[in-house]
Write a protein that binds this DNA or RNA. Sequence first.
DNA 1: GTTGTCAATCTAAGCGCTTACTCTAAAACC
DNA 2: GGTTTTAGAGTAAGCGCTTAGATTGACAAC
Lengths: 382, 382
Amino acid sequence: MRQSSNGGSSAGAPNVVTLYDVASAAGVSTATVSRVVHGLDRVRDTTRARVLGVIEQLGYVPDSAAQSLSRRRKDVIGLVCVERKAPKMQYDIESMSLLFYDEILRGVEARIRHHNWSLMITYLEEEGEPDLPRLLSLSGKVDGLLIGEGIVPSPFLGRLAERQPVVVIAGNPRERAADIVTADNRSGSVALARHLIEDHGRRRLYYVDGPSSAPDANERRRGLLQVLRAHPECELVGSSEGLFTFASGEEAGQKLLAMAGGTVPDAVICANDQMAIAVMQTLAGAGLAVPADVAVVGFDDIFPASLCDPPLTTIHQPMRLLGERACARLLDRIANPGLRQKMELLPTELVLRSSCGCPPGTMQRLPVPRLRGRRPASARTS
Amino acid sequence: MRQSSNGGSSAGAPNVVTLYDVASAAGVSTATVSRVVHGLDRVRDTTRARVLGVIEQLGYVPDSAAQSLSRRRKDVIGLVCVERKAPKMQYDIESMSLLFYDEILRGVEARIRHHNWSLMITYLEEEGEPDLPRLLSLSGKVDGLLIGEGIVPSPFLGRLAERQPVVVIAGNPRERAADIVTADNRSGSVALARHLIEDHGRRRLYYVDGPSSAPDANERRRGLLQVLRAHPECELVGSSEGLFTFASGEEAGQKLLAMAGGTVPDAVICANDQMAIAVMQTLAGAGLAVPADVAVVGFDDIFPASLCDPPLTTIHQPMRLLGERACARLLDRIANPGLRQKMELLPTELVLRSSCGCPPGTMQRLPVPRLRGRRPASARTS
DNA sequence: GTTGTCAATCTAAGCGCTTACTCTAAAACC
DNA sequence: GGTTTTAGAGTAAGCGCTTAGATTGACAAC
């Protein structure tokens, strides 16, 4: 028999009470204790009670490392988010936008809790080569990985996905290396453009695009172009490629103002809210009235969108749900490794405030219908 | 010799390549591979190179469960935060205030990363009995726990702390059961009151207190009373006990307005920003000018504080630093279980905006000096 | 040639748990 | 009464890694 663990209760010593201690104190074998702990197997009621008593009395908590090793499963998933630098300014708008991850995190946590799993979290720089060693080290500690879009380039994703289940959150819907859960950017973009055109009669649109490397920017652009095709009476009077940052929105605003003549747009559609807010400020600085002269809309519904002047009409992404669904999918895949690759598209909401031309004080959230003709969520991508 | 692991690379299968695979492929013992992996011991260069080659080729990643079991250390810490419900309103002010935890989280993560540890995170309801099973389960998976204030009542804290190192973040500086890292609420409160009295000549103060169960509320009240004692020319014309919520701030505002006669205060000090913002709105709704008629100040520097009208003067707590310091302390304690209990007080900043009477557009952050006569951070509490 | 030294490696005993398999005795059956 | 079944419990072999201690062989010192 193995020696009982150290009797002293010196604080901070690693978990002192083991299964063996409980077993010997209760006068049963470790197998029995294990069965009692997991409540499943048949154990006589009197035995069970005795063992439970000892467990309570000794304050036994199973060691997760030993359990994981034995079960070949850790019951832990990892979440990889984009690093947010400490804001230089009080709360700057860029860093605010990354609060998204906090909502995702909550969604994931809420889901995982139901299953009694645990969540490990890491932040990685968005730019450049991913910190591969750290990613691998994390991957060795979890049963599956949830990764935010844009953090890990596709090839690395593939390598990770070979090793264990990986779900990309808000990822490129065309990604092949891993499962994807993402918001339906395209339909959102369509709803936004339609609202401007059909409800507010705007005709001369200007588009402030996101970086072409960003999959959501691509989807949003596609949505806009699709609406434009359906509305030949409308014109895209210009566009510029931004970087999703406030600063690049200011630039776009300047460029737009520099467009002389009668081609001045009556609506500016921006690929995200940061740029939209910057455009609004730039236009207002130049004496243009939003939305009277020009409507401006964004995408994402970041916190400041509801506070700027005028409040920004935009598309809300269901961040929390994104986290929940991605987590559900990951757990599914861990439980059932044979599953097919899958892409799941989550519905967005059109958030009507007043920058689009709706009356001041408007605050309405409308579900965005999924575009007809898109492959359903259950379609396989591979 | 142990059998080599399954050759198939069926995706999703648990970690396939083990130390044994590497050892046999490289023609060395597992001990040597282990030494190579950890880079420390003396291994011949040629051997090291060969082993590293095999590791790379096979894509070996150590299994953390086995490592933890063997080393008796998991290299994981747990962070317990307050649950934030999905906001009903767009972004309501209460849930915004819990974004604090996200900053703390970042601080913790930044610190832990340096040490190559990992972070496990859980959210617990603030109210009522803590979800003890979940807490215990978490505690079995980590080497130490970081717990936000108010989540786990002191007795439970004691039980946890017996088992493993625990640090409470933003906790009651008088707590005995565990280490504490918290902001210097008292000094902040003193700075705020002094600013109103000494810089703006306010004399008739009204205090909107927090719940008496909240340790930070107590510290803040103490700070105010201390200043009042030093300024006999000032008067506390009234106070009410709020609940740190926006709604309770509105109530306090009403109560304040109902105070008839010449005792109307010229400054309202609120124990947190949510209540301060509510008070401002209530006063403004009643036709009072802030700060001309009444100055209002808050505490915490939540995001909306910089956006409300007038922008709120308040005390900024170094949330990120709080996370970092707490984490550092926890790692210390894990490495060195013999350490004395300790309380660490972090300096705050006075954020001057205009609700206190400073000219519109003011935005100044002043370090708050630590009060003389307080025990230094290194003093022991036990 | 012997002996001692020491770097480089190997052997094997755990770490704390799960679980397939085995054992025992009482209940159920003929 | 003898035999089979079965509930309840025990035995012990791992899970993949670390590491103290044993082993080996090359080389220096005698």
